[in-house]
């Protein structure tokens, strides 16, 4: 639910990083926060429990410059991935304009990725949104684990499990090293803002 302020000529757009617990959503935002310091006016807000798990959300506003004379503010959020936090997860989704689904490439997390995607679909439905109609990017995170000899899911398996029907743009990534973190973000911003242009004519 983007907001256009015709007086300040400013647009606010909400992008949410979704996915299973410990998948690397917060790590994505932390990387962006470091890498794009000069576009970020305020501190990153995080609501965490101990052990660094997200309790409510992380929040990072980033300025991407102007489109048709309007300055565009992208509000990046993460949800808490743990299954038990569904009520708060749903609150964060309110008014979402674009989604990055951060899947965990670890072999052991295969089932959790599938369940989290199903949960996303259901939560969107409670806001009358259809997962097929909202800008979405898939990120297959933690590809670096292969270097440490930890078994990871082949990309094809992840594509088949998560993206065979959605056919969203997808990126293999490593949020700890920053691999494809910026590419993922740029892609979701491009998709989301693309649908804004007409409105700003």
């Amino acid at each position: 639910m983007a907001l256009i302020n015709p007086k300040k000529r400013e647009v606010q757009v909400k992008v949410v990083y979704y996915g299973p617990g410990r998948g690397g959503k917060t790590t994505n935002l932390e990387y962006v926060n470091q890498k794009f310091r000069k576009r970020i006016l305020n501190e990153m807000v995080t609501v965490k429990t101990y052990g660094d798990r997200t309790l409510f959300f992380d929040f990072l506003p980033i300025d991407i410059g102007k489109i048709k004379g309007h300055s565009i503010k992208i509000q990046l959020y993460t949800v808490p991935g743990q299954v038990k936090y569904n009520a708060t997860r749903r609150l964060v989704l309110r008014g979402v304009d674009g989604i990055v689904f951060v899947a965990d490439s670890m072999d052991l997390r295969r089932e959790m990725n599938i369940r989290s995607l199903q949960n996303l679909k259901e939560n969107l439905e409670t806001f009358n949104k259809n997962i097929f109609h909202i800008p979405l990017v898939m990120q297959y995170n933690k590809r670096d684990l292969a270097d440490e000899g930890i078994p990871i899911l082949p990309m094809e398996t992840m594509q088949k499990d998560l993206n065979s029907r959605l056919r969203a743009p997808f990126f293999p990534a490593s949020a700890v090293s920053g691999d494809n973190v910026a590419a993922t973000m740029k892609k979701i911003i491009a998709l989301t803002v693309g649908s804004l242009r007409k409105k700003l004519e």
């Binding site: 639910m1 907001l3 606010q12 305020n42 501190e43 807000v45 609501v47 959020y77 708060t88």
Partner: peptide, 28 residues
Amino acid sequence: DLAGNVIVNLDSGDSSHDVFSLAALAAG
């Protein structure tokens, strides 16, 4: 709004709060 967007923000001039973060947290 409840998505956390700031529609109007005014202040008396002697405070400089981070309104976007406040709005995100307030919506939650």
